[in-house]
Design a protein around this nucleic acid. Structure first.
Lengths: 233, 233
DNA sequence: TTTCAGCATTGAAAATTTTCAATTCACCCG
DNA sequence: CGGGTGAATTGAAAATTTTCAATGCTGAAA
């Protein structure tokens, strides 16, 4: 049994070396020698849309590199209110707080089909001791998460409902590689913006009427970025 | 001239060794040998209330450990709107983004009398190469900043104006060591909560009428935490 | 093809927030 | 002690958002 696990571990680290998106993920700067230090299984996992990766309060033995797809981080208030506080996409890390031994700060829920690479905390800890490159990579993730959180406050939690929806659409569009982008449900939009589902819907519908937003296939949309920017900046 | 600077540098590092709040600041885990690596001046600086420590967009050659006092981080939107996105207090780091070579993400403005310890980025970079302890300390600061940002979103940017004001007061009270706490201006409260100055004022005044909030000396207040929690949680 | 379930949209009334214009308050200064 | 200044508070009207209920739309299942 032990052998099987170790075998799996090595396969895991080997996969990392040849990972197609390695330049985007956590191990981009490691060299071959570094990989040889990894003695714990790193697994690729796929999730259906709407899957819970972990729950707020869970113990966190893993950190997750997102290979593809979109994840929402939900935080609950004692009174039952909840906000989506961040979206994670390719190259981001979910469960950063595990590295400090903390329990999960959020629910992590997939918005579409998501593929992650699940890394035991112990692997990070081990590598951290000897590979400065990993430090830098981690610091960069932390920095990115933090500036994401800041702009979530200034862009998505400030101004009236239409402004917020416009800024959310612009952010989603900007983060997308092609010219369409993921359009969340109105309920999720509301939870991101701190407004009701109906308010999110009213703003969205208004933008559609103005032809500033066009729904394409399921969950995908296009926007007139210039016009939205001009109107709501 | 060079000698003067180096002399100053040694004095700086020496001060750190004997710093009264060293357990709270960035260098808590360094040993004597580590301090000997510091060859750049670390200065103690005091600021009057309302001083700008740096401006959004500034190049950032320093990171600042807060020894005492309270700092607001302000972020501006292109349209001129602005939000206070975080408060920093003893032991927190301002200008984290400097460590990635980025320009300042915020204005940092003192709310009361503030004393900081200004550390050149180069010192951190140098120490980082050789002292794993500093890594951990940095990671912890980042983690704290991030979870602060998250709860800013869920607690201070969600719900109606009264709820937000109540949660802000509870946070300020909780962070305080004695039984009074720093009560910001209504304008700053508004900028923290994403509501107008008047809305912040109306909620605050209402709490005073209910005797859930009492203004003490200038800028200091007391709250009935149980009652505020029960009412607005 | 029809039906159904789950979103999305809409409308109207109620509630909240903003806006704008006074006051009022607290404190500093001469 | 009186005046003056900046912040805080208040009130009323306008604007926005929520609430609640109804209706529409779309894709998947039968």
């Amino acid at each position: 049994m032990k052998n099987i696990l170790i075998e799996k571990a090595w396969r895991g680290a080997d996969r990392c070396k040849n990972c197609a998106i390695r330049h985007l993920v956590l191990f981009s700067d490691l060299d071959h020698q570094d990989f040889d230090r990894i003695h714990h299984p790193i697994d690729d996992i796929d999730y259906e849309p709407g899957s819970w990766i972990y729950h707020q309060g869970d113990e966190m033995p893993f950190v997750y590199t997102i290979r593809s797809g979109l994840i929402k981080l939900i935080q609950h208030l004692p009174n039952g209110d909840r906000r989506i506080v961040r979206l994670l996409r390719q190259g981001d890390l979910a469960g950063l707080e595990s590295l400090n031994g903390q329990n999960a700060d959020h629910d992590a829920v997939t918005l579409d089909h998501v593929s992650v690479c699940r890394i035991p905390r112990s692997v990070i800890k081990t590598l951290q001791r000897d590979t400065p490159n990993l430090h830098d990579a981690l610091i960069k993730r932390w920095q990115k998460a933090l500036s994401g959180a800041d702009s979530w406050i200034t862009k998505l939690s400030t101004g009236n409902a239409k402004q917020r929806v416009a800024r959310l659409l612009l952010l989603l569009d900007q983060a997308s590689t092609d010219d369409s982008f993921f359009l969340p449900t109105r309920e999720d939009m509301g939870a991101m913006l701190g407004v009701t589902t109906e308010s999110a819907s009213k703003a969205t519908a208004e933008f559609k009427r103005q032809n500033w937003l066009k729904a394409l296939s399921h969950n995908r949309a296009w926007i007139d970025t210039d016009e939205l920017q001009r109107q709501f900046d």
